[in-house]
């Protein structure tokens, strides 16, 4: 790591020496690039129904995808999606491989070291769930147990007791797990839970729409207790490029989509309950 940093600093020094253009000149660089290419490259997950997934035709689909398309449309450019692994996105340093992340990312202190969060576009509740046969009846019952979640996610941070969300509603740590099983794949924990209570894990924490979806697909799981916390979900851009112009444009577009109810309609299109009613997650809790 030190070698890499050393090289980076020295190459920056050289750049600064050779070109009188300072770092500030980078502002607008990504936005200009988007405009010039007439294309907004959007990073999102392909394993995250109903937010983003690959449909039968091999195309990206879902709430995040619709939001991404709408942002591109309002910028007046085409949308293109790219689906790197979640940790590749959250670790920053995109090197302009893609321009924005519209992938339900929660702004946190640690992520904000490498990423900018120009606009929160919805909020989801996170909740615990257990196998239907589980004897655990309340959240306290999960203390000391083996809880499964997605690696590098806010839920994992919550389980670890170091969830450093920015601009988030207040919350408390309601469960102190004995073991945290962190899996890379979004839905792997659900599959493990399906095997039975206490087989691979004693419970999971995930976003409510996700759990909802699994229950509808016939998974033998149930919600446990109240929602653990609400997380704001934001568009992210690369801090390395620090393109204030791009960030401002995204903030403007999201605000516009909120005020003309586009976001609410998209939310209600994608987040349906079993009884057919819809959820508008775009207004805070």
């Amino acid at each position: 790591m030190s070698i890499k940093l050393g090289f980076k600093t020295s190459s920056i020094a050289i750049t600064a020496l050779l070109l009188s253009i300072g770092m500030t000149a980078k502002a607008g660089v990504v936005y200009d690039y988007i405009k010039n290419n007439n294309e907004l490259m959007i990073a999102t997950d392909a394993n995250w129904a109903p937010f983003s997934y690959i449909n039968d035709a091999g195309e990206m689909e879902g709430f995040d995808v619709d939001v991404g398309r709408e942002i591109a449309k309002r910028m007046g450019v085409e949308a293109r999606f790219i689906t790197p692994a979640w940790d590749v996105i959250t670790s920053g340093n995109w090197n302009m491989r893609w321009d924005v992340s519209v992938g339900s990312m929660t702004p946190t202190e640690s992520r904000s070291e490498v990423l900018n969060f120009p606009a929160v576009y919805y909020y989801t509740p996170a909740a615990f769930a257990v196998h239907t046969d589980s004897t655990v009846t309340n959240l306290a019952g999960l203390n000391g147990k083996n809880i499964c979640t997605t690696a590098a996610s806010t839920w994992e941070m919550y389980l670890q007791g170091n969830l450093d969300m920015l601009n988030a509603p207040a919350f408390t740590y309601k469960v102190t797990p004995g073991t945290i099983t962190s899996l890379v794949d979004g839905s792997a924990c659900l599959d493990d839970t399906r095997l039975g209570a206490g087989v691979r894990n004693d419970g999971i924490i995930d976003s409510v729409p996700m759990i909802q979806n699994a229950i509808e697909a016939g998974y033998p799981i149930k919600f446990l207790g109240d929602n653990a916390f609400y997380e704001p979900l934001s568009v992210a851009t690369d801090k390395g490029n620090n393109d204030a112009e791009l960030d401002a444009e995204i903030a403007r577009i999201i605000a516009e989509m909120q005020s003309d109810y586009t976001l609410s309609l998209l939310s209600m299109k994608w987040f349906k309950n079993a009884d057919g009613s819809s959820n508008d997650y775009t207004i805070a809790y």
Partner: peptide
């Protein structure tokens, strides 16, 4: 492999 992991996700048909 990527498609194998993702295509079944929405319908929970991994």
């Amino acid at each position: 492999m990527y498609l194998a992991k993702t295509l079944g996700q929405r319908d929970f048909r991994h």
